[in-house]
């Protein structure tokens, strides 16, 4: 991709700017679709129909919502720390958006083909943590601060299981580069790491229980990292009145929202790349190629986004101590066992 841009524009700053903005072409339409998905799925789960008037079955409603948010008055609480208050949403969005650079959208496109792909995503996501903390503190609202503190504690705790479950896949592939991880799983559904990867049959069968466990935990930890139900304590509406983004309105709120949806896809993308074959086709060579691979990646990602929506509208919320308990005393020990076992199986 960059080669193409380089050829067109030469080695100028513009290349990098365009390169950096490319994922926006995906994230922005995705957010619109995801809002619609969230609303429609939740509505049908709840015996409603959701909006029906803007366009066919209300498909234009998210666009209208965005336009509304753009026009809304941008309020800043009088006693807020104004600079930090304004800065925070952008940091939060940056944290999620920067992760897209290392996500292999297709066999032909990855933002930055660095060898430390997953590691990089884990690292930049800490930016969002700081952003959340900033927003909570700068709002000068006790509820927001509560939400911010909770979210930071939660994200940091769940980084451990997610990093460990990433490690399981990385150990099998032997690379942190998501593009290579995806390539590794080429050749059909049986080669996906969640099913043991392209290993000899015996090894594959031995790996199977551990990879499946790690896959589920990664998905769970991912939901926790994007603060969605049942782990949505930071913005628990009934307790904390939306937590850290209580005081935000208009465009700044929209950016928080965008960040949430971007993160939803990022998490799904990581899960898909590491365990479900990334952009590879489930049917081996059938329907593969750059365009098809983009389709597969997005389709798998959207499925996991749908799963997150489904879970959100089904389950109640955990309590803070239960959340921490889940992370430290359930998921992490399980993963230690997984890592140990996978290491053993791979060496033998």
């Amino acid at each position: 991709m960059y080669e193409l841009l380089h050829d067109l524009l030469g080695d100028s700053l513009l290349v990098y700017v365009i390169g950096a903005a490319l994922p926006l072409l995906f994230v922005l339409p995705f957010a619109v679709v995801a809002v619609l998905l969230e609303m429609k799925v939740s509505a049908h789960m709840q015996d409603r129909v959701a909006y029906m008037y803007t366009g066919w079955h209300g498909v234009l409603q998210p666009v209208a919502d965005i336009l509304k948010l753009l026009q809304k008055e941008d309020t800043v609480p009088a006693a807020a720390d104004k600079f930090l208050f304004r800065l925070a949403p952008f940091l939060v969005f940056m944290g999620g958006y920067a992760g897209f650079a290392a996500l292999p959208f297709s066999s032909a496109y990855i933002g930055s083909n660095i060898d430390l792909g997953v590691f990089y995503i884990l690292a930049v996501s800490s930016l969002a943590v700081i952003g959340l903390m900033m927003s909570g503190w700068a709002s000068n609202n006790k509820w927001s601060l509560f939400g911010a503190m909770r979210s930071v504690a939660q994200i940091i705790s769940y980084e451990i299981p997610s990093a460990l479950s990433i490690l399981v896949a990385v150990m099998i592939v032997g690379s942190l580069n998501l593009q290579e991880v995806s390539k590794f799983q080429e050749g059909g559904i049986q080669n996906w790491i969640v099913f043991g990867g392209p290993m000899p049959l015996l090894q594959k069968l031995l790996l199977l229980p551990f990879t499946i466990t790690a896959f589920f935990i990664l998905f769970l930890a991912g939901i926790a990292e994007v603060n969605r139900t049942p782990f949505d304590l930071p913005e628990a509406e009934s307790e904390l009145v939306q937590g850290y983004n209580t005081e935000y309105s208009g465009m700044k709120f929209a950016i928080f929202y965008l960040a949430e949806f971007a993160n939803m896809f990022l998490v799904s993308g990581i899960v898909v790349s590491l365990y479900l074959g990334g952009w590879t086709s489930p049917f081996g060579d059938v329907m593969s190629g750059p365009i098809w691979s983009f389709f597969w990646f997005v389709a798998k990602g959207m499925f996991f986004v749908f799963l997150q929506v489904w879970i959100r509208w089904t389950l109640p919320r955990l309590r803070v101590d239960q959340l921490m308990y889940t992370s430290w005393k359930v998921l992490t020990p399980f993963l230690f066992v997984c890592i140990f076992a996978v290491g053993l199986i791979l060496v033998l």
Partner: peptide, 21 residues
């Protein structure tokens, strides 16, 4: 690159959070 990312991971994700807390 490795050190850069580690820098982010440890200083931003760990130490800075600790300082802020």
């Amino acid at each position: 690159d490795f050190i850069a990312i580690t820098q982010l991971m440890i200083y931003v994700g760990g130490i800075l959070v600790l300082v802020l807390f």
